[in-house]
Design a protein around this nucleic acid. Structure first.
Length: 222
DNA sequence: GCGTGATCATGA
DNA sequence: TCATGATCACGC
């Protein structure tokens, strides 16, 4: 699919997916649907990227660079509750001098997001899952304050050399969790004495309560 | 290993 | 039951 030239074109394209099953969409795109996502965890996101015309690749930039828009698929149940946390970005564990919320990568990444809910009951075949109503979101002042607060708490811990003490329970709406091939993966960080050491790579994730709140706000449901 | 796309699966 | 910690695939 070609790249959408305007925000309107992208939204329109996304809205045209609403109500379609992933089977329909994949068939139109000539893409084979996996039986399950165990070995294809990012498949739905990649399918949506493809049909919406996101520029492919794993470069650290928005999915639609010309529009400054990030695409996120969001698995939900029939009551429109998110079923999973939402990965935002890898967390820098070094080079944090001079970084604050305002110039942070998380803020940039979440500045403008096209959310595409996918009704994804675990017991339902991938082909029969249905795309919900997509919506374009930018953080409100209140939402940004929540994100900023969590980002600051987590980043403070990293800077102070406490990254290994961070657990998923930290943060009200955003958390820091492993983001790696497996638990043996290593990346550099600093300990409490400022000495480098190797630790598990982490990523920022939006908690379910946050994305649930966004769904309520934009879809006026429940 | 890093960054993209995430969901799996088990312990509490 | 469900959130946390673990894991899967791919390009480079």
């Amino acid at each position: 699919m070609n790249i959408p030239q305007t925000e309107h074109e992208l939204i329109e394209r996304a809205q045209n997916l609403a109500g379609l099953t992933l089977g329909d969409i994949a068939q139109q795109a000539g893409i084979e649907v996996p039986k399950n996502l165990t070995r294809n965890k990012g498949w739905i996101g990649l399918l949506l990227e493809h049909v919406l015309g996101a520029s492919a690749g794993s470069r650290p930039e928005p999915d639609f660079p010309n529009l400054g828009i990030e695409l996120k698929s969001l698995p939900i149940n029939e009551q429109a509750k998110p079923l999973e946390t939402t990965f935002v970005s890898v967390a820098p564990l070094t080079g944090l001098v001079g970084i604050n919320w305002h110039n942070s990568y998380v803020r940039k990444k979440l500045a403008k997001v096209l959310w595409v809910p996918v009704i994804s009951p675990k017991d339902q075949p991938i082909t029969q899952r249905v795309v919900g109503t997509p919506f374009l979101w930018s953080p409100s002042a209140e939402e940004e304050a929540l994100l900023a607060q969590d980002w600051q708490e987590l980043t403070d811990m990293i800077v102070l050399g406490n990254v290994e003490n961070i657990q998923g329970k930290h943060g009200q709406v955003m958390q820091l969790r492993p983001k790696a091939a497996n638990s043996q993966a290593k990346t550099q960080a600093y300990d409490r004495h400022g000495k480098p050491f190797m630790t598990l790579p982490r990523g920022f994730y939006l908690k379910i309560n946050f994305t649930h709140m966004l769904l309520h706000k934009y879809l006026r449901i429940n």
